Computed example of a mutant assay.
Amino acid sequence: MAEFAPALGERPTSLGELRGAVPVCDRVAYFNTGATGPSPARVLDAAAAWERFHKVDVLADADPYEIGFAEYERLRERFAGFLGVDADAVGLTESTADGVSAVAAAYDWSPGDVVVRTDLEHPAGTLPFDRLARRRGVEVRVVEAPDGRVDTDAFADAVADATMACFSSLSWNYGTRLPVRELCEIAADAGAFTLVDAVQSPGQRPLALPEWGADAVACSGHKWCLGPWGAGLLAVDPAVDDDLRPAQVSYRSVEEAMADEYHLKPGGARFERGTASLAPHVGLREAVGTLEAVGLDAVHDRVLALAARLTDRVDDERLLSPAEPESGLVTVDVADPEATVERLHDEGLVIRDLPEPAAVRASVHAFNTEEEVDRLAAALNGEP
């Protein structure tokens, strides 16, 4: 049977065409990609086409498991290229939180073991370790990072006798880029396993994960990649396989499910379990292909240029993110974040409020326009 190859037409190849491919842009000025990115129509069409192909055409003509499992491997190869790693490293997960919690649960913890994280982490990077503290007696050390900046000396002190360090590649509340490679090197020198929450990075710029030197990286595609919910990726260096024993094992976790003795797959694939829907990852593959057709460097340059346009126009005393943006995330101090989000939504501007710091955050992507950015800045500056 022929490989799945939906007829989606020509991909957009310019920033203007990218905007035209995103349906939500016809309805609102969307600045909340850091929470959930809006998908191009072709991404949604690809996901839907897979479901019809697999549940209609394949059932009539072939073995759905054979075709489905072959598609897993095609997807793994595709995302490995996107992340700059070998296919053996990649596992298909549900989300970043899924990947972080799976790695946290796979380590052989003992009372008194130490986990180090920063105070910038999303609950996806805090809750698994809070649970380990309660149930396994693990000590969690939190390195403070004022204004989104990690003091590497403080981090080195905290991680000196640690078992694992978990931190973000890009802070979700300030939009600052953490010195991932330096933090990984410090942790490695101390003998600590490094787990990076990279949820805000893919889709904003080209990635080559080996440059970070992390043992494991969890991310997903529903934000800046503009993919569907449910498409997570977990890259695990096969060199650390012996350190990780998944808490859940099933037939997609192992090399031969019917063998008398099972052997876990290498890398992130050992965290896959059973027949999870492939539609989200099929959609993500199309989303990645769309951004690559436009050009990831062009997307990155556009994101930073538009974010800088916003920071230039927001009153300086209210800007909590860097004045020279390091990402598309721009955080602004307002008197009443929730009310501000509601007011701007009524004006056709979609942003979000943050719990810490108590502020609002705009996510500027390449599909946004200068006019939308100017409208947003004016609305924020005109807060009553």
Results as ranks from 00 to 15, higher is better:
Leu376Glu: 00
Ala235Tyr: 00
Arg141Ser: 12
Val140Lys: 09
Ala80Gly: 08
Pro228Asn: 07
Tyr174Asp: 03
Ala102Val: 03
Arg52Lys: 09
Glu347Met: 05
Gly34His: 07
Gly191Asn: 11
Ser14Cys: 06
Ala89Tyr: 02
Trp229Leu: 08
Thr118Ser: 12
Gly84Ser: 08
Gly348Gln: 11
Asp61His: 13
Pro146Met: 04
Ala89Ser: 15
Gly267Met: 06
Pro64Glu: 07
Ala187Ile: 00
Glu324Ala: 15
Pro123His: 14
Glu372Arg: 02
Gly37Asp: 03
Thr13Lys: 15
Val254Ser: 12
Leu354Phe: 11
Ala105Trp: 06
Val90Ile: 14
Leu320Cys: 14
Val282Glu: 00
Leu178Lys: 00
Gly20Val: 01
Glu121Asp: 09
Val116Ile: 13
Ser95Glu: 04
Val22Leu: 01
Ala307Glu: 02
Ala80Asp: 03
Asp336Glu: 15
Ala62Met: 10
Leu75Arg: 02
Gly9Asn: 07
Asp147Trp: 00
His54Asp: 13
Gly267Cys: 05
Asp61Cys: 15
Leu15Cys: 05
Leu207Ala: 05
Arg76Lys: 13
Pro266Gly: 14
Leu310Val: 04
Phe31Asp: 00
Pro206Ser: 07
Pro325Val: 01
Ala80His: 01
Ala379Leu: 08
Glu272Arg: 05
Gly125Trp: 03
Glu73Asn: 07
Ala239Asp: 06
Asp316Thr: 12
Val282Ala: 02
Gly68Ala: 13
Ala145Glu: 04
Ala239Gly: 03
Pro238Phe: 05
Glu182Gln: 11
Val196Gly: 05
Asn173Thr: 13
Val85Gln: 02
Gly268Val: 04
Asn32Phe: 02
Asp119Ala: 13
Ala47Trp: 01
Asp161Leu: 10
Ala62Val: 04
Pro6Tyr: 10
Ala165Glu: 09
Thr194Tyr: 10
Val159Arg: 00
Ile67Cys: 13
Ala162Arg: 08
Thr176Trp: 01
Gly232Val: 01
Phe82Ser: 01
Ser101Met: 10
Gly84Asn: 13
Asp61Asn: 06
Ala366His: 00
Asp241Gly: 08
Ala102Arg: 12
Val294Leu: 06
Leu59Trp: 12
Arg375Gly: 11
Glu338Tyr: 00
Phe155Thr: 00
Arg74Glu: 15
Ala235Lys: 01
His281Leu: 09
Arg181Val: 02
Arg27Tyr: 09
Asp241Ala: 13
Pro384Val: 07
Glu272Ser: 11
Ala47Lys: 01
His54Ala: 10
Ala276Met: 07
Arg11Trp: 04
Arg149Asn: 09
Gly125Val: 02
Pro123Phe: 14
Phe155Lys: 06
Leu8Glu: 06
Ala105Asn: 13
Arg245Asn: 14
Val299Phe: 04
Thr275Asp: 15
Tyr251His: 13
Asp353Thr: 09
Pro202Met: 05
Trp109Gln: 09
Ser253Asn: 12
Pro384Asn: 11
Ala97Ser: 06
Val56Gln: 05
Ala106Lys: 08
Glu185Asp: 14
Val360Asp: 02
Glu77Asp: 07
Ala276Thr: 09
Thr152Asp: 04
Leu319Trp: 11
Ala190Gln: 10
Glu255Asn: 08
Asp130Val: 08
Val332Arg: 00
Asn381Leu: 12
Val90Trp: 04
Ala158Leu: 06
Ala305Glu: 15
Val103Phe: 05
Pro6Glu: 15
Ala187Asn: 09
